[in-house]
Design a protein around this nucleic acid. Sequence first.
DNA 1: GCGTGATTACTCGGATACAAGATGTCCGAGTTTGAGCGG
DNA 2: CCGCTCAAACTCGGACATCTTGTATCCGAGTAATCACGC
Lengths: 129, 129
Amino acid sequence: MKFSKATNYALHTMLFLISEAPDKPVGVQHLAEKQGVSPAYLSKILTKLVKSGLIDSVSGANGGYTLGAQRKDVSFLDVIHAIEGTASLFNCCLNGEKECLIQKVMVSAEKAMEEKLKMQKIVELDLGP
Amino acid sequence: MKFSKATNYALHTMLFLISEAPDKPVGVQHLAEKQGVSPAYLSKILTKLVKSGLIDSVSGANGGYTLGAQRKDVSFLDVIHAIEGTASLFNCCLNGEKECLIQKVMVSAEKAMEEKLKMQKIVELDLGP
DNA sequence: GCGTGATTACTCGGATACAAGATGTCCGAGTTTGAGCGG
DNA sequence: CCGCTCAAACTCGGACATCTTGTATCCGAGTAATCACGC
């Protein structure tokens, strides 16, 4: 029960793109150096963000990754869902038992966290407190 | 990023002990059958709950697991912390950078979930609406 | 000067390797209950 | 009837085996910009 490093990399990449390179595409090598990750691995992570529509990729020379159109709206939850998936953090997997009260409580608590993460847009971090 | 099955088993065991056997010790075999788990594995999980002081174990024949003294106060968060640990779900692990804004947001959201789980006592589920 | 091809700098996707943690099993050791047996 | 011993029913703890998932690497394919060359 931990957030993966991939989520960490994805969030930092988004923050960097928004704050320092809103227009020009940035190569994966540059992004990887900033965070001390292997470019190949970061590329794999960013592909997920592309498929979720959070960023765009530009092929060819001078290519790289760039922000999508609606960049102002990207929330923490968007990034997390793109990387970790949208499945519930808890599933009871106990047979018949119709509805599991424990499951209900867990899902409710999970929603509380997601609500916070949905409210927080990444762009808000750029311009400090 | 998912809650482990162990947490699920632990929560169900706590609920069972509170609702159906507040005094008598219950053998791990009986508890395991109820949930379709191997007794050996469940025993390993319950040992964590014992070490955290949430339940007591009774050795010898007719032994088993029984509720501790302050059973009314056990919350979801207590059980989860006993099984999953109390470490933060997210750590930035990005070098110098003094304080990471992303880390702050994540921890804050995590706290929101924990607050909900701390409020919800397991005993409250027993007498459901 | 200009088109055409080759080179270069990129991303994309799949295949693969590696490590760590979750899950599950097995067995020996210690502990208590209860039954059996001898006095 | 009493006390002793012994077996049975338990948990405890560690050591293992397995399986999934996260982490990471490598390479071939495709694509776009740029450079080189020849006309």
